[in-house]
Simulated scan of single mutants.
Amino acid sequence: MKDEMIEMKALMLSYLKKQTEPSEELSNATASVLKRLNIPPMPSPSSINNNSQTKCKLLDWYGSGEIVAEGRWSSNDPTAMVHHIPIGPHAIRVWIDVAKKPNAYLWRPTSEMKCIEEALGSTVAWSSDKVNEMESSSPED
């Protein structure tokens, strides 16, 4: 059984290395298998900017337009992981720095985090149409 798992892991790594474009087919089930096999997430493509200094505002995901949090943009690579789950298409991985509406529900809650306040200091997936880049007012921002 152990040899089969090693072989499966090698096949999965080979498959993932051959991927040139992220696929919507990378589902939660696939992420679960990758986690069980201890396969690390693939790095983001070089065309994806992972600049964690880009500040952004998270708008509520149900449409009121209210700012629920401020944070730092991390990645829009669909294969980028948030708590061992790929963010998927049309999503952004964001570090949560400030809770403007602490009780606002997360767009993709986990067993550990349900609302903005619980996500402080961590990354979350957020709908890309609900993330706005903030204007910098000084070099320290």
Results as ranks from 00 to 15, higher is better:
Ser23Phe: 05
Ser23Gly: 10
Glu24Asn: 11
Glu24Val: 14
Glu24His: 11
Leu26Glu: 09
Ser27Asn: 05
Ser27Val: 06
Asn28Thr: 15
Asn28Ile: 14
Ala29Thr: 09
Ala29Gly: 06
Ala31Ser: 14
Ala31Pro: 03
Ser32Ala: 09
Val33Ile: 15
Val33Asn: 04
Val33Asp: 02
Leu34Lys: 08
Leu34Ile: 08
Lys35Ser: 12
Arg36Cys: 14
Asn38Lys: 15
Asn38Met: 13
Asn38Phe: 11
Ile39Ser: 06
Ile39Tyr: 02
Pro41Met: 04
Met42Ser: 11
Met42Pro: 06
Ser44Pro: 03
Pro45Phe: 04
Pro45Ala: 01
Ser46Pro: 07
Ser46Tyr: 08
Ser47Ala: 12
Ser47His: 13
Ser47Trp: 14
Ser47Gly: 15
Asn49Gly: 04
Asn50Ser: 07
Asn51Tyr: 02
Asn51Gly: 01
Ser52Tyr: 02
Thr54Tyr: 01
Thr54Pro: 01
Thr54Cys: 04
Cys56Trp: 01
Cys56Val: 15
Lys57Thr: 12
Lys57Arg: 12
Leu58Thr: 12
Leu59Gly: 08
Asp60Thr: 15
Trp61Ala: 14
Trp61Arg: 13
Trp61Met: 07
Trp61Lys: 12
Tyr62Trp: 08
Tyr62Pro: 03
Gly63Ala: 07
Ser64Glu: 11
Ser64Gly: 10
Gly65Trp: 09
Gly65Val: 13
Glu66His: 12
Glu66Gln: 14
Ile67Thr: 14
Ile67Pro: 00
Ile67His: 02
Val68Gly: 05
Ala69Lys: 03
Gly71Val: 00
Arg72Ala: 00
Trp73Pro: 00
Ser74Trp: 01
Ser74Leu: 05
Ser74Lys: 10
Ser75Pro: 04
Ser75Asn: 02
Asn76Ala: 10
Asp77Glu: 03
Thr79Ala: 15
Ala80Ser: 08
Ala80Tyr: 07
Ala80Pro: 03
Met81Thr: 09
Val82Gln: 07
His84Val: 09
His84Ala: 12
Ile85Leu: 07
Pro86Thr: 13
Ile87Phe: 03
Ile87Arg: 04
Ile87Leu: 10
Pro89Leu: 13
Pro89Phe: 14
Ala91Lys: 13
Ala91Leu: 03
Ala91Thr: 13
Ile92Met: 06
Ile92Asp: 07
Arg93Thr: 10
Trp95Ile: 00
Ala99His: 03
Ala99Lys: 03
Ala99Trp: 02
Lys100His: 05
Lys100Thr: 07
Lys101Met: 05
Asn103Pro: 00
Ala104Trp: 00
Ala104His: 02
Ala104Gln: 05
Trp107Thr: 13
Trp107Tyr: 15
Arg108Lys: 13
